[in-house]
């Protein structure tokens, strides 16, 4: 349930932005990588629970998963890697280096302004 910490961080960031913008946040878009194993349903559940009683209550949350990329040490190519079968699609090489996973980021908030 590290998703609770993710939801908590998300709400803190939204509240901070809402104070600056002075409107009611109605939708947010976040993105995450692959290795931080974020489950959408669990994040949404935690988000709803923590948002209760704040201006974030009732917000729509969009979650974008960014694929993990690898660099093949055989042919030098970069490719989107699936961990269950990580072979390079170009040369079928198995010697690769995982590139840094995308961090958890709050990308965009949509505000309703009067």
């Amino acid at each position: 349930m590290h998703e609770a910490a993710v939801a908590q961080g998300l709400i803190e960031a939204i509240l901070c932005e809402a104070e600056k913008q002075g409107g009611r946040p109605i939708r947010a878009r976040m993105s995450c990588g692959t290795l931080n194993a974020v489950n959408d349903e669990v994040v949404r559940f935690a988000f709803e629970a923590i948002a209760e009683g704040t201006v974030c209550e009732g917000m729509t949350l969009e979650i974008e998963h960014k694929p993990l990329q690898a660099k093949c040490r055989t042919c030098g190519g970069t490719y989107i890697v699936t961990l269950s079968d990580a072979r390079c699609p170009r040369c079928a090489g198995t010697d690769f280096e995982l590139l840094p996973d995308a961090p958890l980021v709050l990308d965009e908030i949509e505000f309703e302004k009067e």
Binding site: A5, E12, E17, P103, L104, L106, E112, K113
Partner: peptide
């Protein structure tokens, strides 16, 4: 409606 780009790290703290 107004969209705001944020780009802040969720686990920034």
């Amino acid at each position: 409606m107004e969209k705001v780009n944020v780009g802040s790290r969720i686990l920034g703290a």
